[in-house]
Design a protein around this nucleic acid. Structure first.
Lengths: 221, 221
DNA sequence: CTACGTGTGGCACCCCGGTACTAGGGCGAG
DNA sequence: CTCGCCCTAGTACCGGGGTGCCACACGTAG
């Protein structure tokens, strides 16, 4: 059972959400709020699984409320719902720590799917927004770090060893790396061992640290 | 009717996609390819609405193939399907111009929805990936720099756990940590275990990654 | 041709890392 | 005072990590 807090300044809109959600099983509306202040307070009180958050509200808006809710470190996740897909809203909401961003004209099943995804820790973005988001994201990324390749510590690594090292630095176990790269675990171990020996790492923990130090991996994600 | 090109080096996988998609209306599989080179060629020939693209393939991989397909300026959109949600794959695929990124264990209806969305120009990302993507995106954006200590993930850590975590992130073993902090190894293990549980790390490698991620330790410093 | 580097794979062995449980002492809040 | 949290410590267990060593295929530099 997923508990939900509805935040919207328009009573009619809140009613609409209720209509849609109360007919569904597995979700239960535990409260409502009509502005940001109230949203923060009620979230702290009720600690719902998911907060359905409107952005435009009198007083404290949804962005600021989202920021405070996520900053508090509670388990409630925020799913932002707006009428307009203005980019600035999307970015601001994401930076505020929102777990999702849907448009209010979403179909009930989309809304439900979104709520469920957010409740289990995943994230959702409305398909229409995803495209622009990805585009902006691709531009924001400067691209794989090439300066890393020139670091003396990595000089002696073969292409394969570098690749394996990158994956190690994402936190996967040898078995997982083997599956990911379609190799046997033995082979992975060999590569990892050789890579560690070359860069002077005693174990994979130090390998990861070195990988971060030389900028092999980007400290993001 | 949405035309589809299936690209995967494993015949069984291609067969699986056929099974799923041929039972659906509105989509039609117009061809297959088993590596990147062939994918580029067949896309040029057939100009399908959507290319279902595997990443890891012998010869030219799916990323490079995606890059060439989108660079060619055709109308075909690329939907990347991979078994593992390795971050670097996602980023690389996005930069290569992919319109979507799904996991192969997606349910048939999710796959269908993804294909339809991509076909009409929208984009899709698997929910499990969206979360990390948003997180990475929020970090890539300029914004109020929230530095280490206030990160929600660290909020629940006690002083001692934080201290131990910092030392873990320098690459010391439990025994070494015990010596430097004048504790028994058992105690160190307890702290490390608790810290990992709280921040959601499976092992100390992931703990180190998270430590770097939130800025607990200084990269390159 | 041979030799080497590289990527791949396998196997035996040991030990560290991580979990689960328990438990005592200190310390502040109710 | 009692409760709960934190720090401390221990034992037992086991799975994965890491090492060493071996083997084969392939391409290329010598």
């Amino acid at each position: 059972m997923t508990s939900i807090l509805i935040v919207d300044d328009q009573p009619l809109q809140r009613m609409g959400f209720r209509m849609v959600l109360e007919s569904e099983t597995g979700v239960s509306i535990v409260g409502e709020a009509e502005n940001g202040i109230e949203a923060v307070r009620r979230t702290a009180e009720l600690s719902p699984d998911v907060v359905l958050m409107d952005i435009r509200m009198p007083g404290m808006d949804g962005i600021e409320a989202t920021r405070r809710i996520t900053a508090s470190g509670g388990r409630s996740r925020v799913l932002v719902l707006t009428t307009f897909d203005l980019d600035e809203y999307v970015y601001a909401a994401l930076q505020a720590g929102a777990s999702g961003f849907l448009l209010k004209d979403a179909r009930p099943d989309e809304l439900l799917a979104g709520i469920r995804a957010v409740a289990v820790g995943d994230a959702v973005v409305a398909p229409a927004l995803t495209r622009r988001l990805l585009h902006a994201f691709a531009k924001a990324l400067p691209g794989p770090d090439r300066r890393a390749a020139e670091d003396p510590r990595l000089r002696t690594l073969t292409e394969r060893e570098l690749e394996v090292l990158r994956v190690v630095a994402t936190g996967l176990t040898n078995t997982e790396i083997a599956e990911t790269l379609h190799l046997s675990e033995s082979t992975v171990k060999t590569h990892v061992s050789r890579a560690m020996a070359k860069i002077g790492a005693r174990d994979r923990v130090q390998a990861v640290i070195i990988a971060y130090d030389v900028g092999l991996v980007d400290p993001r994600g």
